[in-house]
Each structure stands twice: as C-alpha cells, then as structure tokens.
Design a protein around this nucleic acid. Sequence first.
DNA 1: CGTCTCCTTGAATTAGATCAATATGTGTGG
DNA 2: CCACACATATTGATCTAATTCAAGGAGACG
Lengths: 227, 227
Amino acid sequence: MSVSLAVAASQGHKHAGMAMPWMHSDQGAEIALSGPVLHFAPDRRIYAEGDEARSYYKVVSGVVRTCQFLSDGRRQIDAFHLPGDVFGFEAGADHRLSAEAVTDCTIIAYRRRGMESVIAGDDRIARQFFSYAMACLEQTREHCLLLGRGSAAQKIGAFLVEMADRGESAGIVELPMSRQDIADYLGLTIETVSRTLSQMERDGTITLQTTRKVVLKNRQLLEDLNA
Amino acid sequence: MSVSLAVAASQGHKHAGMAMPWMHSDQGAEIALSGPVLHFAPDRRIYAEGDEARSYYKVVSGVVRTCQFLSDGRRQIDAFHLPGDVFGFEAGADHRLSAEAVTDCTIIAYRRRGMESVIAGDDRIARQFFSYAMACLEQTREHCLLLGRGSAAQKIGAFLVEMADRGESAGIVELPMSRQDIADYLGLTIETVSRTLSQMERDGTITLQTTRKVVLKNRQLLEDLNA
DNA sequence: CGTCTCCTTGAATTAGATCAATATGTGTGG
DNA sequence: CCACACATATTGATCTAATTCAAGGAGACG
C-alpha cells in the first residue's frame, strides 16, 4: 500500500528524499494517490493573499498562477506553475501571494504542519526545503532582471524560451494562459504582447499556429535578444 | 574569550540561535571580533557572478550592492545591504550575483562549509537559514512588483520609504548610493531619478538637503503612490 | 446564427529614454 | 585659500517605445 507523502512527511521517520513533492518524479501516480486532491476551474481562486498558509500544493495537471493585486486593480503575476511544480510554500503564517487556476487543474494539498515536523526531524529534507526556497529565489531574481531591464521583445522572447524549456516538445510551445496573463507576468499590456507576437511572426522568428500555439522558428534569435 | 560565530557554526554543537549572523543583534561587537574581517573601498568588487561561493558575508559598516550585469553593459541591482545585513548566501556552488562596495565598508566573511554542517547538525539553525531564504524571496518579490508595475514616481517613492524604514532617523534619509545606483535598482535612468526627485521637492513632498540627504516632508503621500 | 470573450490592429498620446548642456560638488596641488 | 580638474547631478530639448483609446476580427458555445 502506498503511503501518503504528506503522512510520511509528518511522521518524519522515512527518508522521502527521492520523492519530495516539488521534484517532478516518475512516481507521479503514487504521489497523486497520496494527498487530498483538489480540482479548480479556470480563474478560480485557490487561496488569497493574506489567507492562513495551512497547506502548500503541487500541480498534478493544468496550470496555476501566483500573483499580487494592486490597489489600482492591476495584477503582477509572480509565476506560472506547471504540472510537477510546487507553490504556496511559505515561511510565515500567511500566504503572501494569491493563487488561481489558469486552466482546469488538479492539485494536491500537503499539510504544512507536516512540513514543519519534517524540517525538525530530518536533515536531508530540511536541506531540500532550503534548496527549494533558494531555487525560487533565483527564479524570482531572473524575473526581476527581465522586468527591470527588458524591452517588450526581450520579455516576450525570454518568456517563449522559458515556456519552451518547461514544456514537452522542444519546438512547439503551448501557451495555456491568456494574453492578459502574459502581460501581467511581463509587466506589459495585452496590446503590446499581441503586437510583439505578431511582429515576431512577420519577422519569421515564430509562427502562431493558433493564438495559443507558437512554433519557435528561430529560437537562437529569441535567446540573443537578451544576453 | 568570545568564540567566533563561524567556528561555533562549523562545530555545530552550540546553539547560536540568538546570534545568527543575519540578525542585527546588539552583540555587534562580539560578532565583529569573531570572523575574518574585510575592508573594501567604494566600487570595489567583493565577488563576481560565477565565483565559487566559499563564504557568505555580513555587513558591519558601509553599504554593499548585489547585482547582475547584462551583455549590453547594463546593470540590475538586486539589493542594497546595510550594516547587519547578510549577503552572498547561495544554495548552489557559485554566486549568482556580483557584490560590490557602494561606500567604504567593513564586512565579515563566514565560511560556507560551516553553514552546511550547521544545517546538518542543528534543526533550529536549519530553520533559520530557511527563514532567511524565504525572507529574501519575499523582498525580491516586492522588488519585482515595483519593477513590473511602477511609474517612476512610485518607484522612487517606494525606494525612499524603504530607505527611511531601514535607516536610523525616521524623517531624514541618507542615501549612500549614487543616482546611477538608484536608477539601476529601480530600472530607470539617472535623468529620470533626478527629475523625479526634483519634482517631488517642487511638490513639497521632500526636501533635498544635499544630493544625498533627503527629508521626507510627507511620507504618507509617498506611501499612497503605491498601494 | 447570434452572443460573448478573447485577440488583433490602428491611431493618438505620453512617460520615460536619449542626447546635449550646464551646474554642483569634491578633491588636489599650487 | 584659491584654481583647476574630474566626477556626479541637474535641467532642457527631442525622440521613441509602450500605453491608451478605439474599432474590428476570430473562435467558442449555446
């Protein structure tokens, strides 16, 4: 019988190092069986900024966005979370970001209490949590670099390359999110996102098979836009 | 005799919880005696992106900036580190950012080897390292929000409030860094930084006693610019 | 077939960048 | 102390990339 990762974690005896929830392991099925499984329809809120951080989550299928809202109604998307990614992991008592379903999605919740016992009880796991936090930090810094310094073309280029790297097939990028989502991730407007993609298609850098399916005709060119 | 924090850490027996290096404790003197102490003149490099991360550091006096350089010669400053702050802390083998002295400064280096033994040997310390990483993450996300969404006035306003909160005296903000540094932190040009500050002075929001000394006449107004 | 939402395109506007002087320091040597 | 040089900062005049405002299309779905 397959023991729940969350339970294994809270017991703190087992070395679950090979199957930490943020590792996109091949034992997906086992992990999928292990925790409380939740479903969300597009644009449904998973948790809000300020909610008590009782759990953290792993995406099984679909896509989740984590974001902050500003008083003027604008939104900054911090990250898109694809299957295998973990989100909602907090040091403090509350969530600092909101999380919402981008597409229909299935996620597993892990009790946070479990996490803390684990850190107290297992060095290897503690170090992995630490590494995970540092990885997030690095990713966020990369995002800062893009937001602070990039032209629209640089931002879109970097975004497409990022999505290509995270996706299955190398050349064809499926964009599960709307233009508005992309705009809010990159600090642009939907019009600029749309125009930039159109321009790239005219240049022959990409092909837009459908609005949400992009073929990278010249990936090198996209990469060269940045560094 | 006062035991070096770095040594205490590498031995991993003592509970140094109350004096973790990133906590700006009152035992500054003790800590200052404890590690290898280094001095840097303004604009001197402390380490470069890609250097092996043998140590992490704590600012004793002066100010340090951590930054990334782009191929086109531009620079994104990730953070300014004031006395008491820790920087150069990495999960991986290498530094992902460069660190440079903004002003004349004194810093303490902590052997990284120590850190790892500590994490392995002491749960409380492991958790504090984790918390530190998460705190950095939160700060970086805040920075993203500013970079992605702010107008020049919002960025400068937030920056002044941030500096005011971190500094000694509430109303008067000493800016140890150049306009170029501020520009590279906020994703602006020096001209825009200068113009925005001048405009704020004309509005009566601030007074520029000297170019590096700002009086916040109406802090509330600066805060309201953002959220 | 119509309605709704999302996306694209066009024209006008603007915030910030860029280019170009000028000014304000700040330190150095006479 | 002054005079000079050099770095840093301010200010002004354009320029431009991206936003805003305003229509149109293109799919999805009942």
